[in-house]
């Protein structure tokens, strides 16, 4: 049995359902028509929608920027990593280039110097107030190297082997006070004994028949049977006139010892030139290798 309340609710429901039906009927009659109430609701809803859209756009653009920044940060990190790798690669390439240059110099040295040489890597440069010593690491041990052997660089004379221990040797530089090298002024051929005076400087006393000048090149004479003849030693930086027609020349070594990476130990003197080389007949090739005539 339906109660009055139920009947009232049922009536209200039917009445309420009639509202959308009426709205639909109105819309069906004129789909494009909007009632004043519709317009009022739309007047409120339009700005609400636009405002929410604007807020969403603002928040969205902020979020997008934030995401973009995060993405840019990631890209930046990737690029930084790549940059690090490339820097390492570049450093490696520079090292290889330097090594290549050293090897080229080595080959040029072998062309320039006729003597038998042994390449050595410079491992240290000791500089006490009294002695100037270069440490070399040899690639073939002390079986070949003996104290007193000359040491050259591509730019000039370095010094002499002082001590040898296993595959390491100490080189007494030409600036060492103990060092003595037979040299000459390249322009005047005035000979003398170059002595080390420390502080990256050497001195030599020569005859002043043809006076030496600042800037003259000093080179080895080969008279001491240690250094090959004509190898550069240094440059005159100061000239002092001495009594008895002599000059004392201050010489700046041609080699920058602190920047030296590679040196060559002269193992043996070059053989004497063969004056009969042109006259000697070359032996003929074996029969099997001769061209057919």
């Amino acid at each position: 049995m339906a109660t009055p309340r139920t009947l009232r609710d049922l009536g209200l429901v039917i009445l309420l359902l009639g509202i959308p039906v009426l709205l639909l009927r109105s819309a069906a009659q004129d789909p494009h028509h909007l009632s004043p109430f519709d317009r009022a609701v739309r007047r409120i809803g339009g700005p609400l929608e636009a405002g929410l859209g604007y807020a969403a756009t603002t928040v969205g653009s902020f979020f997008e920027r934030w995401l973009l920044q995060a993405r840019l940060q990631e890209v930046n990190q990737e690029l930084a990593g790549e940059n690090r790798q490339l820097r390492l690669r570049l450093r490696e390439l520079l090292r290889v280039e330097e090594e290549n240059r050293e090897l080229r110099r080595s080959l040029q040295m072998r062309d320039k110097v006729a003597e038998d040489m042994l390449a050595a890597e410079v491992t240290a440069f000791e500089q006490s107030p009294f002695f100037r010593v270069l440490k070399l690491e040899l690639d073939r041990g002390d079986r070949y190297v003996r104290p007193g052997m000359a040491v050259l660089a591509d730019t000039g004379v370095v010094g002499r082997i002082d001590r040898v221990a296993d595959d390491r040797s100490d080189v007494m530089l030409i600036t060492d006070p103990r060092s003595k090298v037979a040299v000459e002024v390249a322009r005047t051929r005035a000979a003398g004994i170059l002595e080390g005076v420390g502080e990256d400087a050497c001195a030599v006393v020569v005859a002043s028949e043809t006076p030496a000048q600042v800037g003259d090149l000093i080179q080895t004479t080969g008279a001491d049977d240690l250094f090959p003849k004509g190898h550069p030693v240094g440059q005159v930086v100061k000239v002092e006139e001495l009594v008895g027609d002599q000059q004392r020349l201050s010489v700046l070594p041609a080699v920058r010892f602190d920047r030296l990476n590679m040196a060559w130990v002269i193992l043996a003197s070059a053989p004497a030139p063969d004056t009969m080389a042109d006259q000697r007949q070359r032996p003929g090739a074996a029969r099997g290798l001769q061209p057919l005539r």
Partner: peptide, 26 residues
């Protein structure tokens, strides 16, 4: 109550009609 809740549902539908551009009342 059912009538009150139904009225709210109809209002919500009406608002959606206007926002979605549907014929009013659908």
């Amino acid at each position: 109550g059912v009538p009150a809740a139904l009225a709210m549902a109809i209002i919500l539908g009406y608002l959606e009609d206007l926002h979605q551009g549907m014929p009013t009342g659908v």
